[in-house]
């Protein structure tokens, strides 16, 4: 596999790289750009190709029927949909307030919300335990007053996914909402619209496509969540074992099931990306 790396870039670059007569210097400089670019492409594409090549295609359906596969896919779909719903309900107003705020507080808030984007997910999982665990700052009173235990439940899976995906959603939607001309708000306000009405009648319709792509990003991030989930929610079939966790566990005793499940996740991701690319992402 690794020996194919250098071969892949000329293959990609060949038709473009051939210098046209009289254009040898621009052709050369273009080649200088194409080689690292091609290597970059290879670094991303080769693992995916490796996955496709190592898949036992004739038996993929059989491998997908391994007992841990469907509970994991079902749990992943349910929890990621719940995560997207939470992101939309809580994240959209937050993004709108941030888009229309310019103070220092807004900048700080924006910086804090970016932390989960750069934080290693497993650190996020530890933080979630410290907050919602049985001895956590929120978890202990919740257990005391309501008798509810959060870790090891599907709710914990959703909390972990929201922690990592809400920032993606808010940053994407805020970007879209900043694109909504502030004069529309002003006009709506002079016509007597309340801030809530401006949000629902002006911001939401105009930023609709941005919200949709933000939701898709949040969903993709939630679907791939591993570190925070296994640290905070644990790993139990049908309850907290999402598809990425099932891939990890299956790799230990049933690698073909792990590969088949990876292919299923890859297919779903590509499908969503394809739909988005056609409509919103350019």
């Amino acid at each position: 596999m690794t020996t194919a790396t250098p071969g892949a870039s000329p293959e990609h670059g060949a038709p473009v790289r051939r210098p046209r007569p009289g254009l040898s210097r621009p052709g050369l400089s273009r080649a200088v750009l194409l080689v690292p670019a091609g290597l970059g492409v290879a670094l991303v594409v080769l693992p995916l190709v490796g996955l496709l090549l190592r898949t036992d295609w004739p038996r993929i359906l059989e491998n997908l029927s391994a007992p841990l596969v469907w509970p994991a896919i079902r749990l992943s779909l349910l929890t990621t949909l719940a995560t997207v719903a939470v992101c939309c309900v809580l994240g959209t107003p937050l993004a709108w307030l941030l888009a229309r705020a310019d103070g220092r507080a807004a900048s700080w808030l924006r910086a804090v919300l970016t932390v989960p984007v750069v934080l290693p997910p497993v650190v996020g999982g530890v933080a979630l335990l410290m907050a919602y665990g049985r001895r956590g700052v929120v978890g202990a009173p919740v257990l005391e007053l309501l008798g509810l235990r959060l870790p090891f439940t599907p709710t914990a899976v959703v909390l972990a996914q929201v922690f990592v995906s809400l920032p993606f959603f808010v940053l994407a939607v805020e970007g879209a909402m900043r694109g909504v001309d502030a004069r529309y708000d002003a006009v709506a306000a002079t016509l007597g619209a309340s801030p809530l009405r401006v949000f629902t009648r002006v911001a939401l319709p105009l930023a609709g496509p941005g919200i949709a792509s933000g939701a898709a990003l949040a969903w993709a991030r939630a679907l791939g969540e591993f570190g925070a989930t296994i640290t905070f929610a644990g790993n139990f079939e049908g309850r907290t074992q999402t598809a990425p966790l099932a891939v990890y566990v299956a790799l230990q005793n049933d690698p073909q099931a792990a590969i088949a499940l990876s292919i299923a996740m890859l297919a779903v991701s590509l499908l969503v990306l394809g739909l988005l690319r056609g409509r919103w992402l350019r």
């Binding site: 693992p47 791939g224 891939v247 996740m265």
Partner: peptide
């Protein structure tokens, strides 16, 4: 998202 979906078996 894609990286995580593919990482282990790759």
């Amino acid at each position: 998202a894609l990286g995580l979906a593919a990482c282990s078996p790759a």
